[in-house]
Design a protein around this nucleic acid. Structure first.
Lengths: 211, 211
DNA sequence: GTCTATAACGTGATAGAC
DNA sequence: GTCTATCACGTTATAGAC
């Protein structure tokens, strides 16, 4: 009864600190929506799902996000910005190609560990035809950003001699992304989860070991 | 008039040999439901979506399938049986490993060409947490059957020297399946669709050319 | 910024006539 | 087997009080 705990807290405490880390309502709504999209898909939750578990009323969400589409758009936009910030951090840390690959893998392993969530790209893509048009646009931008990152990483790594694979970097980027996305999804239905196997196999195939 | 659009579309998709040309209602309902699951996901359509585009009433579907869960289960069961029959056909035709791989690739290419459908496994997996329990069971059985087929194919091909890849056949099976599934999904949001690139890259990586 | 109340609609499902 | 008619419920969304 997590929602009930939240309800009690919000009743008796300053709303500013109600959700633990000093998060405001708006941010808490976005967090919850993103989590639900990874868990159940955009059509798998409603404003009630969010409001009930936060201990607020339905109308409060409509104040921050007039329509569900508005909420969805913000979730995807924020996820893209967060990804780009993460990528810049790797730049700043001057991480090598293998470290970057592993850092990305770790992100996906976390989705699996945190309740077998799928990745946002996969969620948006399978729901795609039911999404409001503004969300479809954001979905394309989000996936394109990640794709571009992988293409650059693979191209750089091959030039440096730490990656080895045939064909275009762009095509290999598609394969790596699709592999992670698909294996994360498949981990929901097969035992044991196959994501780590997919990662190890991908590593075997593109990371040059000798030298 | 979404239902009408669907009706027109189904006219041009040869999966469904047109409703009204002698096929029984029950089969037509299953066909339509399967198509909708690949297009919009299990939560992306209703009994009304089906009944409207077939020109029957809601209650007629409930006669054949008391609950939506019953319909979903039958769709997945039939898809598994169809896959196993297809696999047996390849056995009968004594197809070689590369031919089998290409035959499977062709199935996925068809999903893309017929209106950017995704594969059933991917659809079930992303919807998984919202599915009725009987459908979850079927989803696992369906994906497991395909996974087993790929493992056997890859193992056999490597023994025969036409496939080359490191590690266990099981792990490579996960990668190939996940790649097709993920690339098919991603083809919905990137231009041009990346599925063929993923297939060519996969071929480059596991099919031994000189031999 | 959040609440109560409610509208308008879609969905899964059932009863009973034909 | 299919129909009409109807139900209970959930969903998105708005109006207006506080």
């Amino acid at each position: 009864m997590l929602w009930f705990a939240y309800y009690l807290v919000s009743k008796h405490m300053d709303t500013q600190v109600s959700w633990g880390a000093g998060k405001d309502t708006r941010t808490a709504i976005i967090d919850m929506a993103e989590d639900l999209m990874l868990d159940r898909g955009f059509n798998g939750f409603s404003y009630s799902t969010i409001s009930a578990s936060m201990g607020i009323r339905n109308a409060a969400i409509h104040y921050h996000f007039p329509g569900k589409s508005d909420l969805g758009v913000v979730v995807v936009q924020r996820a893209r910005e967060r990804f780009l910030a993460w990528a810049r951090q790797l730049e700043t840390a001057d991480a090598n190609p293998v470290e970057r690959l592993d850092a990305f893998f770790a992100r996906y392993m976390r989705y699996l560990e945190r309740g077998k969530r799928v990745c946002l790209g996969g969620s948006l893509e399978t729901d795609y035809k039911t999404l409001p048009e503004p969300m479809q646009v954001e979905a394309t931008a989000f996936v394109s950003a990640i794709m571009a990152w992988w293409e650059t990483l693979l191209e750089t790594g091959r030039k440096e001699g730490v990656f080895g694979f045939p064909g275009e970097s762009r095509d290999q980027a598609v394969v790596v992304m699709a592999t992670l996305q698909g294996a994360l999804q498949t981990s929901r239905v097969v035992e044991p989860p196959c994501l780590s196997a997919a990662m190890e196999q991908t590593r075997r195939m593109i990371v040059v070991k000798s030298q």
